[in-house]
């Protein structure tokens, strides 16, 4: 069972954080809120999302699972104006989600949860260094890196965080000493990542006041941030430089 009311912008932001990586997801519904974990088709990136019950203006639920086509859901949500409320109601018998915006009401057909790619195994990672920076700052750095290369190095040396992108012609380097960071755990870390993925993620990251980046040596990158009461965490596999 699910009956909920939420601010359209909050829900849109939450869905966008996921739909940049996957098209179909399985939401787990509980008293705590809505949660999902999904991996992109290539198994390079993973996303975890939690919309706390407190993010909703009204939330009433009993545990369950629903499969949702995010492309269609985003499409429907794009009809809502900023500041409008979205009403969600699960029609269990019909396997549909009723979505109300103002005087409009849609029914979205749900996908059989068993038809959705199974939830990813979550690697247990011990990442030696982390930094916290404003989301907008990270997004800007990613945009700049895209202008020179397809991939980017994220690293920490002593108490300095750096990003490096090297193209055939140009190179870009950003360095931020600990004094410019919101928070950090110094350590040795350096890994290379695909900008395709970071760019897809950075649109959502850019909206967050702060984003925590956890980095290792040739290890996956964990990116965690909050959009109000929506918790998002990405995990991105590193690229290994070929000789």
């Amino acid at each position: 069972m699910l009956k909920a009311v939420i601010d359209a912008e909050t829900l849109r932001d939450a869905i966008e954080a996921v739909s940049s990586l996957v098209d179909e997801v399985k939401f787990t519904i509980s008293e705590r809120g809505l949660e999902l974990k999904a991996v992109d088709p290539a198994n390079v990136a993973m996303v975890s999302l939690r919309i706390d019950a407190s993010a909703f203006e009204f939330y009433q639920a009993t545990p369950g699972e629903i499969g949702v086509d995010l492309v269609r859901l985003s499409d429907l949500l794009s009809m809502a104006d900023r500041g409008e409320r979205v009403r969600l109601e699960l029609l269990e018998e019909e396997r549909k989600l009723k979505i109300g915006v103002g005087s409009l009401s849609y029914t979205l057909s749900l996908i059989d949860p068993s038809a959705i790619r199974k939830e990813p195994r979550i690697p247990e990672l011990d990442l030696p260094a982390h930094v916290t920076i404003p989301g907008a700052e990270f997004r800007r750095a990613i945009k700049a890196a895209e202008k020179v290369s397809d991939h980017v190095v994220l690293g920490v040396k002593d108490d300095v965080f750096y990003m490096e992108a090297k193209g055939d012609i140009d190179a870009l380097k950003l360095t931020m000493p600990s004094s410019e960071l919101l928070d950090m755990k110094p350590g040795e870390a350096r890994s290379l990542f695909s900008l395709d993925y970071l760019s897809d993620m950075s649109k959502s990251i850019g909206k967050a006041p702060e984003v925590k980046l956890e980095i290792g040596i040739d290890y996956p990158l964990r990116i965690s941030f909050r959009l109000n009461e929506v918790h998002v965490s990405y995990l991105l596999a590193p690229r290994i430089e070929q000789e």
Binding site: A45, M46, R121, P123, A237, Q242
Partner: peptide, 14 residues
Amino acid sequence: ERRKPLTLAAFSGS
């Protein structure tokens, strides 16, 4: 044969 691990499976097992 020359592949370097590039996915999360390298860290989570497969």
